[in-house]
Amino acid sequence: MDVFMKGLSKAKEGVVAAAEKTKQGVAEAAGKTKEGVLYVGSKTKEGVVHGVATVAEKTKEQVTNVGGAVVTGVTAVAQKTVEGAGSIAAATGFVKKDQLGKNEEGAPQEGILEDMPVDPDNEAYEMPSEEGYQDYEPEA
């Protein structure tokens, strides 16, 4: 019985440690998101679009440190934060509304985080759909 109880105690310690790591990862992701939003706020009209992409990228980098179902929630929060940063930029006159959601080359930025393969159960990952990809044929 002692062996059984000791095993359960060790398992509990492992769960607590994993929860603490997840909590730490979420806190880091939130900190990076805040950094990115402050970065966007300090940019001029020309830099705002690039700044919004930076927020998304920093958040995406930190999301990889967070495991399990938390990833889905962090990704949703990050996307809403990026959308909010863009709205703030438009409201303050840093950028025109028609410039939001495009990178410096004018290509749409939507789907940055949505296409990231995420499995809350950590069982399997699927690649994003290939609808947006084109076949590449090298020139002879």
Rank of each mutant, 00 (worst) to 15 (best):
L113Y: 08
L100M: 09
A76G: 08
A76H: 15
N103T: 08
D119W: 02
V82H: 04
K32E: 01
H50D: 13
V118P: 10
V70W: 09
K23V: 05
V95G: 07
K10H: 04
A30W: 03
G31L: 10
E104Q: 10
E57R: 06
Q24M: 11
V40W: 04
D98C: 11
V71H: 14
L113M: 15
V16Y: 15
A27Y: 14
E35H: 11
G31D: 04
G31K: 08
G132Q: 11
G36F: 10
E28N: 02
T33G: 03
D2R: 02
S129L: 05
G111M: 15
G41D: 00
Q79H: 11
G106T: 11
A124G: 14
V49P: 03
G84W: 08
G47K: 08
P138N: 04
D115Y: 08
T64H: 11
Q79P: 01
Y39N: 11
S42E: 08
T81F: 11
A85V: 10
V55L: 14
V15T: 01
G132P: 04
E20N: 07
K45G: 04
K58D: 01
P117C: 09
V16E: 13
Y125K: 12
S129E: 06
K45N: 02
G68T: 08
K96C: 10
G41K: 02
G14K: 13
G7C: 12
V118H: 14
P128F: 02
V71N: 02
E130D: 07
G84Q: 14
D98K: 09
A56Q: 06
N122A: 05
A124Q: 06
V63L: 10
A53H: 11
G41N: 03
S9F: 13
V95T: 15
K102N: 15
H50Q: 11
Y39K: 12
V37W: 09
M5V: 07
N122Y: 11
G36L: 15
Y133L: 13
V118A: 06
T92N: 05
V74S: 01
V74C: 07
Y39P: 00
Q79C: 06
M116L: 09
G67L: 15
S87M: 14
E123W: 10
D121A: 06
A30N: 00
K21W: 06
D2C: 09
Q62H: 10
E104D: 09
K6L: 04
E28W: 07
N65T: 05
M1I: 00
A89G: 07
A53S: 10
E35R: 11
A19W: 14
V40A: 04
T92Y: 10
E131K: 07
E20K: 03
D135G: 04
A19M: 07
E130K: 10
E123L: 14
A11P: 00
E114A: 02
Q24L: 04
S129Q: 08
G14A: 15
M1R: 00
E20T: 13
T54R: 12
G31H: 08
M127W: 09
G68R: 06
T59N: 01
G68Q: 03
F4I: 11
P108Q: 13
Y133I: 02
K45S: 04
I88D: 01
K102D: 11
V70A: 03
K21C: 03
V63S: 02
E131D: 12
E105V: 09
T22W: 13
G106N: 04
E139A: 07
T44M: 13
K60W: 06
T81P: 02
N122E: 09
A89N: 02
P108D: 08
A85C: 08
T81W: 08
I88P: 01
V15D: 00
T33E: 00
I88W: 09
K10P: 00
V52N: 00
K80N: 03
E123M: 15
G36E: 06
E35D: 14
G36I: 15
P120L: 07
A18E: 00
Q79K: 14
A107S: 09
K34F: 06
N65L: 12
L8Y: 02
T44N: 01
E13N: 11
L100Q: 10
M1W: 00
T44P: 00
V74G: 01
T92M: 03
I88E: 01
G86S: 06
K97F: 02
E126P: 11
V37Q: 00
F4C: 02
D2L: 13
Q24T: 10
K96N: 09
G86H: 08
G106L: 10
V77F: 06
Q134S: 05
V71P: 01
E110C: 06
A76E: 04
T72G: 15
Y39S: 10
P117L: 07
A69Q: 09
E35T: 07
Q109K: 13
T59Y: 13
M127A: 03
S87E: 11
A89Q: 05
G41A: 12
I88K: 03
A85I: 15
Q62I: 11
A30V: 07
T72Y: 05
E83C: 08
K32S: 11
K12M: 15
F4N: 00
K45V: 04
L38W: 07
A29H: 04
G73F: 03
K58Q: 04
E114G: 09
G47A: 13
L100K: 05
A78F: 13
G36D: 04
E28Y: 13
E131Y: 09
S129R: 04
G86A: 08
E13D: 02
T64L: 11
K97W: 10
E83W: 12
M1Y: 00
V3M: 07
V48W: 15
G67W: 15
A140I: 04
K6G: 01
E110K: 07
S9N: 11
V52Y: 03
G25D: 05
V26L: 12
E130A: 04
P108W: 07
A29P: 00
P108A: 06
A69K: 09
E35F: 13
H50P: 02
A140P: 09
K45H: 01
V66E: 01
V77L: 15
A29R: 04
T33L: 06
A29K: 04
A69N: 07
K32I: 08
Q109T: 04
V16P: 00
N103S: 12
K60N: 01
M127N: 08
N122V: 08
Q79I: 10
G31N: 13
V3P: 00
T64R: 15
D121W: 04
V52E: 00
S87K: 03
V40H: 03
Q24D: 11
E57Q: 04
A91N: 07
G7Y: 03
K102S: 01
T64K: 06
G41S: 14
Q62L: 11
K58T: 06
L100H: 04
A53E: 11
D121C: 06
G36Y: 08
V48F: 11
A107C: 05
E131Q: 15
M5D: 00
G36R: 14
D2W: 02
T75H: 08
A107G: 14
E130Q: 13
A78N: 01
K58H: 13
A107I: 02
A85E: 01
F4L: 12
A29M: 12
E46D: 07
K102R: 04
A89D: 02
L113I: 15
D119N: 05
E126Q: 02
T44G: 04
G68E: 09
L8P: 00
G7H: 04
P120C: 05
D115C: 06
P138T: 08
K43N: 04
P138R: 07
A30M: 11
G101Q: 11
A56F: 13
P120E: 09
L100S: 15
M1C: 00
V37A: 14
D115L: 07
K58P: 01
D98N: 07
A124M: 04
A76I: 12
M116Y: 12
E105A: 11
T64Q: 09
K34P: 00
I88N: 02
E83S: 04
V48M: 08
V71Y: 09
N122P: 04
I112G: 11
K43W: 14
G36K: 13
V37C: 05
V55S: 02
A124L: 06
E139R: 10
K32A: 10
Y136A: 05
E123G: 10
Y133F: 08
F94R: 01
L113R: 12
A89R: 12
A27V: 07
V82G: 02
P128S: 05
T75E: 02
T22L: 04
T59C: 12
M5K: 10
V63Q: 01
K96R: 10
A107W: 09
E130C: 13
K43M: 14
E105R: 12
G36T: 15
E35K: 07
I88S: 02
A91F: 13
K23F: 06
